[in-house]
Amino acid sequence: MNGGTNPTRVVLFDDSLRHNTSFSRELTEAGIVVAGVAGTPREMHELVKTVSFDVALLDVLVGASDDMVGLGIGLWLRMHRPDIGVLMFTSFDSEFGALRLLKVNPHGLGYLIKNRVHDTRDVVRAIAAVRDRRNVLDDKIKAALLPLNGQNHPGERLTATEMETLRLVVEGHTNDRIAAICGVTVKAIDTRCTAIFSKLGISGVDGPDKRNRRVTAVVHYIKNLEKFRHVWDMSPIEWPPP
């Protein structure tokens, strides 16, 4: 499956023994080397220390505990072992979980929802993609993250002054007023707004009410960017175990 070169080595982390057993078999049949299987955080820690592998398949363990340890492992690996691909294979259907992982490292992430994958080949393809530093996201999660407009950091592509301008637009100020607040000319603000609209993918010209693009920008900002901001405030997940 892997072009005849080195077979991909993976480790599995899932608290369901039955799942691990049958899933290992499925992967092995597909030509993937299962280098290790872990059912507890401690076992996983041992694997990470002792076994070499290309991709980690992780469950978030939402069913068994509330501490999101699988997500913690994923974050740690993406931070400290950027060479390893991370494929979340879980029931934890969360665009926020995916975004956290992308935030640490924007490449080589897979995020698949267990009960939406009906074909092992999809997993195998995802493993290959993740190993090659590409991202594979569940369609619905991808759709949920779409408002980010391909950015891993909301508003990242906007410059600091553009962000400030957008915030003032959101607060309802006119361009004249924003120019006064920022201490620049109205023309400069006009330019900034055009840049913001273009970066946020808001195209076209204002309608007859002249507010169209402005309102769209505000709605965009509030609904689609702000909601992901709390990902930045999330408390860290403890990993590795003490």
Binding site: S16, R18, H19, S22, S91, V117, D119, T120
Partner: peptide, 12 residues
């Protein structure tokens, strides 16, 4: 989880 496994197995 077992059902998901069964589905993948049958597909396979």
């Amino acid at each position: 989880t077992p059902l998901a496994t069964v589905i993948r197995r049958i597909t396979g």
